[in-house]
């Protein structure tokens, strides 16, 4: 029940948005993410966007993990 899926916001209208979930279009609630903009990725849970996915952080954490895999652990905590 606690699983979420990423979705791209295509269009916003009031408390709802058209989103793309892995190629499938659907409507999602955006009440919990008032800051959301078209083009953002959101985390959907049971039809509601619960968070705007911060792509900078996502990319940073990948870069960090690559460094760790290469034996450089100084970025851990």
């Amino acid at each position: 029940m606690c699983i979420g899926v990423p979705a791209e916001v295509l269009e916003i209208s009031g408390e709802e948005a058209r989103v793309d979930v892995m190629g499938a279009g659907m409507t999602a609630g955006i009440v919990f993410v008032p800051e959301v903009k078209v083009g953002d990725f959101v985390l959907l849970h049971a039809g509601q966007a619960m968070a705007v996915i911060d792509r900078t952080y996502a990319e940073e954490s990948i870069a960090e993990w690559r460094r760790v895999l290469n034996g450089r652990d100084e970025f851990l905590y």
Partner: peptide, 17 residues
Amino acid sequence: VVNDYRSVVGQGGNPVA
């Protein structure tokens, strides 16, 4: 407590929720 999921989890959580 390390936040390894910062792309969606903030310090204080979701204030609207």
